[in-house]
Design a protein around this nucleic acid. Structure first.
Length: 888
RNA sequence: GGGCGGCUAGCUCAGUUGGUUAGAGCACCUCGUUUACACCGAGGGGGUCGGGGGUUCGAAUCCCUCGCCGCCCA
């Protein structure tokens, strides 16, 4: 006998261990099985599971379990990402907190060794947390972006793209993060609106004929100014173009140039140009051949290109000093407050500097062409579709991708420099040496590029590098392209787009046929969860409190992708209760001898109740299958919830009780077998969403009756495929009548405050022949659930009985002695009013010639029937009301 | 400034291609411990579907417009 509730705390670890030990997380070996693969969005190796991971991985697990049960060779390939900046940051912080020397003092080799140590120590955290969630990843194929195999893939891709001139070295402005002292890509820059000022600075004209006033939000950059620009058609300044100004403080003479970049409407209409520290100024500077003076060092301090007094100052200190000096020189012409966008590093949070350096770039524009075309032609589809727009928007305006990072943790760039700066890009040092020998005619010392690659460079290869590429492995042949990618919209650019580019370029095939973009999890009030706000729900804590199934079901049921998920504990609690409900329904069947019958054929059951539940089960299985096949995770979950709770438990189990305890042995046996059959189907359908409780129940019921065709784990049991012919409309109608008779009768009783103990008969006043037969055959059932003494057939409702109409039949409860006549009149009047308004609406439609002539025939017919039914019901209730009036 | 998403019951959300009386869960009120389940059962109240306009026989659903909220890009 089952316990009263499921105990996730003990059962989940036990079940997971058993699954994992079975080796069945790996795809089946059967070459006939259709491959179905997904690759995990690799979490940061040193990270820990947050609620977003929980959602994303739950959906992946739902999908992979579904396809595995459908008999596919289902592979969910897991792994982790080395997460360059993030990990290096964590380790540096840890070193500092332990009072160690910094990484620079420590040296590259020692530092990287430290990071590996940290990875060894904390790298297992997140994958173990995924296990707690129930993720059925094939751990035997687990990969890490810095694995030797993946590193080989990275080198091969780099070298190939370099040969194709799609990777090149260039000196241009990059986004420089002074905190980490590295370049970052455009995507890693966050524009934040901040309060600032416009300072108006006067630059004296060289010839002493006056001054020109420029406005700037960044005073310190004036130390690197090399021109002033005005709009060519700006009458105020036309006469100054070609003249020079002498930069205060610096003393440098710089030209006034005419350029359309200067906006006459903005500020003073004249703009200072610092080509080495502003993206716009850089472009203008190129146009006019201006000098580019870099005034900063890697740390964001002023360098030796500025006057002595400023050297070594932090940029923020320098800003204050410049302003003070302008004031002292009486050249400050004004200050206005402004709000403006300032670029910040997304990891460091510090203000990013445009900085002139040599970096490696990918010609993303070239690679994007095919990636755009593939989505345009639906070789890869986004679900929901509208995310394609976001993808296209970015892809069509893509900029060169800066891929070098001045970090130590990552894939070191496979480029070696000779003494004269000649670069040799090869997969190995030996290869580079050979090329150098060829080039120089003798051995020359080579030094490898110090930089590493952007983490996303290796992530972009994930769908094929994890399958063994560049080796021609069986896995690669079998599982590439992958089927579905499930990820968040926040990394469409970072990751999805780049996988599309690299996959198409190197595999000539899209990396995945479908991309499902999952929602963002927020707190109950809709705010983004963050540690600083303290509104974070820790998925592991939720698993502890409610079990993994409850959390999974909640996330799945709320995953309607159009909107954010507002997660709250009461919601999870409710779905925990759902698991308990199923548990107890199983417990009930167990107590009542429900067991699988050998050779049970659901199409052959006789009792209408059993025929009905068989049909309902079929409908549910078809709906759930269609939903899951289409990434309709929420729909699948909600369909199951309604079926299991509101149909199976609320009605089937209740209606089956008399059969299970009754005298009719044949009906009893059939019901036991049907219940066992339906429950097996339910467990299978629910398994992808709630794997633990279903697996446990599957195991607990394994010994009841005939053995299952599949006697292993539910996880690998076949998915229910039931023919639509199992639906029996006659049985449906019969059960509908019974359910309605009971429901409506209960409603009458409660509304009129008939005492629960009272057991009047149920009177059947008017009903069709078929309906009479159904009510007669099921009299004990109705009597029990409606708490009436019997079902009695009468010719007319006696005085003081309370009639109600269901499915066109008139039933009545003789409960006059118990009730308040005024309450009953009110009830009837309310019903009559509701019917009257319905009649008015329907009649209005039918009296409209346009409706009758233009609406489809079946819609018109439906309305005619509806009107007739409502009118009949209204007449019955009105006569009852009249009788009551007479009594009073 | 451009784009996307949202606005439906007190709260969180469903509502296929326009077509019964717009649904569910939670919360709330009433009743109930009938041999699966109080992590339960029965019943009930509660919405002019953000505003306005339009198309249509018919609009929560399609179109236009305005408002508010959130996000992305510049």
């Amino acid at each position: 006998m089952l316990e009263k509730t499921f105990d996730p705390k003990t059962a989940e670890p036990r079940l997971y261990a058993a699954w994992e030990a079975s080796g069945r997380f790996a795809p089946v070996d059967d070459p006939a099985a259709e491959p179905f693969s997904i690759v995990i969005p690799p979490p940061n190796v040193t990270g820990s599971l947050h609620i977003g991971h929980a959602l994303n991985n739950t959906l992946q697990d739902v999908l992979i379990r579904f396809e595995r049960m459908r008999g596919k060779a289902a592979l969910w390939l897991p792994g982790t990402d080395h997460a360059g900046i993030a990990t290096q940051m964590v380790v540096e912080r840890q070193l500092a907190s332990e009072g160690n020397v910094g990484r620079r003092e420590m040296g590259r080799e020692a530092f990287v060794a430290k990071v590996w140590e940290w990875k060894a120590q904390s790298g297992g955290t997140i994958v173990n947390q995924l296990r707690r969630l129930g993720a059925s990843c094939d751990w035997s194929r687990e990969r890490f972006t810095l694995d030797e195999g993946l590193s080989a893939a990275v080198r091969k891709v780099f070298v190939t793209l370099h040969r194709e001139k799609l990777i090149y070295r260039d000196k241009r402005l990059v986004n420089w993060d002074p905190h980490f002292q590295t370049a970052i890509s455009d995507l890693e820059v966050e524009q934040r609106e901040v309060d600032g000022h416009f300072w108006h600075f006067a630059y004296p004209l060289e010839d002493g004929s006056g001054e020109i006033v420029v406005a700037t939000t960044r005073p310190e950059t004036m130390l690197g100014d090399t021109a002033v620009a005005v709009h060519p058609s700006d009458e105020r300044y036309k006469h100054l173009v070609g003249k020079k100004v002498r930069l205060p403080i610096v003393g440098r003479l710089v030209p006034i140039v005419a350029d359309e970049y200067a906006d006459p409407e903005k500020g003073t209409g004249a703009v200072k140009l610092t080509p080495a520290h502003d993206f716009n100024d850089f472009t203008v500077g190129k146009r006019h051949g201006l000098e580019m003076i870099n005034i900063l060092d890697d740390f964001g301090r002023l360098n030796d290109a500025v006057p002595q007094a400023y050297r070594g100052l932090d940029r923020s200190v320098a800003r204050k000093r410049v302003i003070e000096e302008f004031e002292a020189l009486e050249l400050l012409r004004g200050v206005e407050k402004t709000r403006h966008m300032v670029p910040h590093g997304d990891r460091s949070g510090v203000v990013v500097e445009p900085y002139l350096t040599d970096q490696w770039y990918v010609n993303a524009e070239h690679l994007a062409r095919e990636a755009i075309a593939a989505v345009e032609t639906d070789r890869t589809v986004f679900v929901p579709k509208h995310w394609e727009k976001t993808y296209f928007e970015w892809m069509r305006n893509i900029q060169p991708w800066c891929i070098s990072r001045q970090l130590w943790w990552g894939h070191r760039i496979p480029a070696w420099f000779g003494p004269d700066g000649t670069v040799f890009v090869e997969e190995t040092e030996e290869g580079a040496k050979a090329k150098a020998l060829e080039h120089y005619g003798r051995d020359e010392p080579l030094t490898q590029d110090e930089d590493v690659l952007d983490t996303w460079f290796s992530s972009a290869l994930w769908p094929f590098s994890t399958l063994g590429w560049p080796e021609k492995t069986d896995d690669l042949a079998r599982f590439y392209p992958t089927h579905t990618l499930i990820t968040g919209f926040d990394i469409i650019f970072f990751w999805v787009a780049r996988m599309m580019m690299q996959g198409l370029h190197f595999m000539d095939e899209v990396p995945f046929k479908r991309v499902f973009i999952n929602a963002l999890v927020r707190d109950a009030s809709g705010a983004k969860m963050s540690k600083s706000k303290g509104n974070v729900l820790d998925p592991l804590e939720l698993v502890d409190d409610f079990g993994a199934d409850a959390l999974r079901f909640t996330l799945t049921a709320m995953s309607g992708a159009a909107r954010d998920i507002k997660l709250s504990r009461p919601r999870i609690e409710g779905y925990r209760n759902f698991g308990t409900k199923l548990w107890n329904a199983t417990r009930f069947t167990q107590m009542n001898g429900c067991a699988r019958a050998p050779g049970f054929d659901p199409a052959a059951v006789k009792a209408p109740l059993n025929r009905w539940i068989v049909g309902e089960t079929q409908r549910t299985s078809a709906a759930v299958t269609a939903a899951l096949a289409d990434c309709g995770f929420d729909e699948a979950a909600n369909t199951l919830y309604r079926f299991i709770w509101n149909r199976f438990c609320d009605w089937y189990v209740e209606l089956a009780k008399p059969l299970l305890t009754g005298e009719d042995q044949a009906a009893k046996v059939e019901t036991q077998a049907t219940a066992a059959w339906a429950l097996d189907v339910i467990l299978a359908l629910l398994h992808p969403v709630m794997p633990f409780v279903t697996e446990e129940l599957w195991g607990q019921t394994a010994g009841l009756g005939a053995p299952r065709a599949h006697d292993g784990f539910l996880m690998t049991a076949p998915w229910p495929e039931l023919p639509a012919s199992l639906v029996d409309p006659v049985a449906d109608a019969e059960i509908a009548l019974i359910i309605e008779a009971i429901s409506e009768g209960r409603s009458v009783r409660q509304e009129l405050n008939v005492p629960p103990q009272a057991q009047p008969p149920l009177l059947v006043v008017e009903a069709s022949e078929a309906q009479r037969n159904v009510l007669k055959a099921n009299a004990p059932l109705v009597a029990r659930l409606l708490r009436v003494s019997e079902v009695r057939f009468v010719d007319a409702a006696p005085e003081g009985s309370i009639p109600y109409v269901v499915e066109g039949a008139t039933l009545a409860l003789p409960v006059a002695e118990f009730i308040d006549l005024a309450a009953e009149r009110a009830r009837l009047a309310k019903e009559v009013a509701a019917l009257a308004s319905d009649i008015a609406r329907t009649a209005g439609k039918l009296n409209n010639p346009d409706f009758v002539s233009r609406a489809p025939e079946e819609v018109v017919e439906e309305n005619r029937e509806r009107l007739a039914e409502a009118e009949a019901a209204k007449a019955k209730l009105e006569s009852a009301l009249a009788r009551l009036g007479a009594v009073a």
